[in-house]
Design a protein around this nucleic acid. Structure first.
Length: 272
DNA sequence: GTGACCACCTGGCCGC
DNA sequence: TGCGGCCAGGTGGTCA
């Protein structure tokens, strides 16, 4: 389940593997992956384009091409693999970018949740998928005052607000649990009840956890791998998510549902 | 405008 | 062993 650290790991891996490569041909085997173009237009527009750079915003990957920006969201199980055309196509490989012969960049997605958008170059930052995104975790404007103001308007539990991409972009279910644990905040506490001090702790914990996770190549809970099948190591450092004992007080970790999502927390360290 | 709920999908797991 | 049902979860759409 790729969150910001996993997407950043994929970006870094792809950056070294495919930047400078020319797209000779595109095969789309599952049309729904392409969100804002027909399969035919998508295939036609990308032929001859060179991958100039790969960026990330929140959980979105942005392939900067000659004339277009290709946006890719991995959702739950999306992965990219660099293979040769000799290797048989897996049933979960839905989009194939044929690069310099015989190399192919293949988009693999078991659950077909991932989406790709194609925009004219330079227009993607103001497009629908990206314009709603909130602060990047290392954005200098992500201050305790700004976060506090934002959360004052939210009448939902803080866990739900952390998953809201219009607040802080890139946080998913696993890291939201970890951030709240490090911040000593109960996941059911209402967002508008948080103090500026709480916001300061959330920002600090977010930056710390995401930085560590990126350094370790992300988290592999069930299905995430970066390009070429590299597994992340951060799962060995998770403090509460999917854990049974609190690493601080040794009390039992509780599992509840918040906003329909499994949520792990320590009732002793994270009082309401 | 905001929040709650559901659909999209498939593999893994569990109970029978 | 095989089958059915539930669960996982990011996002967008719909409804209240």
């Amino acid at each position: 389940m790729p969150e910001l650290p996993e997407v950043e790991t994929v970006r870094r891996t792809l950056q070294s593997l495919v930047v400078g490569k020319k797209i000779e041909k595109v095969e789309v085997h599952y049309e729904k992956i392409i969100a804002n173009e027909t399969k035919e237009a998508f295939q036609k527009k990308l032929v001859g384009e060179v991958i100039r750079e790969i960026h990330r915003k929140g959980k979105w990957l942005i392939f900067e091409l000659d004339h277009y920006d290709l946006l890719s969201h991995l959702r739950m199980e999306g992965k990219y693999f660099l293979k040769t055309n000799q290797e048989p196509l897996s049933k979960h490989e839905h989009v194939v970018f044929c690069l310099d012969y015989p190399q192919e960049l293949r988009y693999h997605d078991t659950r077909k949740f991932g989406r790709m958008y194609l925009f004219e170059k330079g227009l993607c930052m103001t497009c629908e998928p990206l314009q709603e995104l909130g602060y990047e975790p290392w954005d200098e404007n992500l201050t305790d005052s700004n976060l506090y103001k934002l959360l004052q308007k939210k009448k939902v539990p803080i866990k739900t607000s952390l998953l809201d991409q219009s607040v802080i972009a890139g946080i998913g279910n696993i890291y939201a649990d970890e951030i709240l644990f490090l911040s000593h905040i109960h996941p059911l506490k209402f967002s508008f009840q948080l103090t500026k001090k709480d916001c300061q702790r959330i920002i600090g914990a977010t930056q710390k956890i995401l930085y560590q996770a990126i350094e370790m190549g992300g988290t592999t809970i069930r299905s995430y791998e970066s390009a070429q099948g590299v597994h992340g190591r951060f799962q060995q450092h998770l403090l509460v998510h999917n854990q049974t004992k609190c690493p601080v007080c040794q009390k039992d970790i509780e599992r509840i549902t918040v906003g329909g999502r499994s949520t792990y927390f320590c009732p002793n360290c994270q009082k309401r």
